[in-house]
Design a binder for these strands. Structure first.
Lengths: 134, 134
DNA sequence: TTTTAATACGAGTATTTAAGTCGGGTTTAA
DNA sequence: TTAAACCCGACTTAAATACTCGTATTAAAA
């Protein structure tokens, strides 16, 4: 219950790795090997993050990825939603075509919980995960 | 991302419904019809909650379910875990046979987030959801 | 200038988990 | 004795996640 997806895990592992490499480029291959992550899958995730402007890619041999300035300040809510889509505990928070709506008897309390979770992720920055000590 | 399962939703909807019916029994059929929930599925969930001692079943015609004293005070962490299994954002919080472990670079920060979520659910009681106004 | 090692990207497959169904059994009020 | 409820395990279906593959593009280095 309430597990993160692998993609998100891989993304965070990669970002932390890239960040800790300072200015040198990191290839998908290198990162995948370091953490035993399927290379193709990681590659796609990295490509997605390039599109989202979180990292910068350099092509060609000796190429790789590096962090883009500003990533550290990005809120986890934004990061998660751009990578994985909407973040809501129940569908009615997302698409609202539930047959219930007027009838549902737990909507309010669930929304409250949902807000709590969102608030929590809103207060965490990507940098908190990629830079935190230990 | 981070969605509740239908089973859990159905369980909470049913509990709230049963609770609001006071002392009279509620059948699975009646509840399923009220909220357009698949009856068989709801029935199984109710049966599970009987086993967990959250509700009491009365068999035979005119039978049904009623709330057991004490349910309201049960913490949501316990409730969720008894119904759905362990509540952790990453597998290493659950079974610990991750090939990484020593190698993983985001373990600490993720654990922190995990604790936050657990703490939040720890502070919510089933009764907060089944009894909260509107 | 050719090779090689990297990213880019869409389509496709496989696996896992969640969701729902079915059939037969037990209980008990009417 | 019947009917309406709960009980329960096995099964099927559907959806989401995880992963793979093939091909194209880029650019450093031999």
């Amino acid at each position: 219950m309430l597990k993160l997806t692998r993609k998100l895990e891989y993304a965070l592992i990669a970002l932390r790795h890239i960040r800790q490499s300072g200015n040198s480029l990191c290839s998908a291959k290198e990162i995948a090997a370091s953490y035993m992550i399927p290379q193709e899958l990681l590659a796609k995730t990295l490509q997605q993050m390039v599109k989202l402007n979180y990292i910068k890619a350099v092509q060609g041999p000796r190429g790789g990825y590096k962090i883009r300035k500003g990533l550290e300040k990005v809120r986890m809510t934004q990061f998660i939603e751009e990578l994985e889509g909407p973040l809501g505990m129940v569908d009615c928070n997302i698409n609202s075509d539930c047959v219930q709506i007027g009838n549902c008897n737990i909507r309010m309390p669930i929304n409250k919980i949902n807000d709590n979770i969102r608030n929590m992720f809103n207060d965490i920055r990507v940098g908190d995960i990629t830079s935190q000590l230990t």
